[in-house]
């Protein structure tokens, strides 16, 4: 009984800490829905993408590629590249979730997003993941998932009603959400170097085909951060406290 109550409280803490990110995901979900249907995807497929793929930035990019009549295989490949970062989120969370049965690991992996990763890894770093950290992650993931479906649906309806819905600049919500996640993480010199290298490389490599510039820029940023950490050992330990 006590364990039940504690799990429930932890779940609600996960929901609460995710609320600001839901605010950012709302216009982003709406712009995806609007772009998808104005770009030629059926409303069912647009909603299906949110339900089964559930990866905002790749859905957004896919909607753009569909509007440009890019082939199915290339869209799936681009999705893979854009979502590769989730592999590293999963790898970071794996040791925290290894004691859980598949009935937990499967849904937590399926709903792993930038937003849920950001709040969950912060919680696990500050307070550890045992005994009930998975309830925290579930709360964050469930809140984000439901929010994303609702706003996708709003965008689909708006996109069918008004041709201009896609040009309102709602995609800025993605920019502001990612800034909110990244800036507090830049607490050390190596982190700053990693961000500067990744950001400038991404601009310079923007014209590479199929969004591969994004992946190369990210790898350069990771390498730069790791190299900088080797140069200034100890600086980073302070950020772990």
């Amino acid at each position: 009984m006590v364990a039940q109550t504690s799990a429930g409280r932890t779940l609600l803490a996960g929901v609460r800490d995710t609320l600001p990110l839901m605010l950012g995901a709302a216009p982003f979900g709406a712009i995806f829905g609007a772009l998808a249907v104005t770009g030629g995807l059926s409303p069912g497929a647009a909603l299906g993408m949110s339900l089964f793929v559930y990866a905002g930035s790749s859905q957004f990019i896919a909607a753009g590629l569909i509007a440009e009549s890019v082939s199915l295989g290339l869209i799936v490949l681009t999705t893979f590249v854009v979502n590769l970062r989730h592999a590293l989120y999963g790898a970071s969370l794996g040791p925290h979730l290894k004691h859980l049965p598949q009935t937990w690991q499967l849904p937590l992996a399926f709903t792993l997003t930038d937003e849920t990763f950001a709040v969950t890894i912060l919680r696990f770093t500050e307070r550890g993941s045992r005994p009930d950290g998975h309830w925290y992650m579930l709360g964050s993931a469930a809140a984000m998932y439901i929010n994303w479906q609702v706003w996708t649906a709003v965008g689909i309806i708006a996109g069918q009603q008004f041709e201009d819905a896609a040009s309102l600049g709602l995609d800025f919500a993605m920019v502001v959400t990612f800034i909110g996640i990244v800036v507090p993480l830049i607490a050390t010199r190596p982190m700053l170097i990693s961000a500067l290298v990744a950001g400038s490389s991404a601009v310079l490599l923007n014209d590479l085909p199929n969004r591969t510039g994004l992946l190369v820029a990210a790898l350069l940023g990771i390498a730069a951060g790791a190299a900088a950490e080797a140069l200034w050992p100890g600086e980073d330990a302070a950020a772990d406290e």
Binding site: A91, M174, N206
Partner: peptide, 21 residues
């Protein structure tokens, strides 16, 4: 330790071009 740079690098690589271009 290397994995800790992943979110910063990837999200910055998505965000900076979205801001500048």
């Amino acid at each position: 330790r290397v994995l800790r740079y992943v979110p910063v690098a990837v999200l910055t690589a998505i965000t900076v071009p979205a801001m500048l271009m």
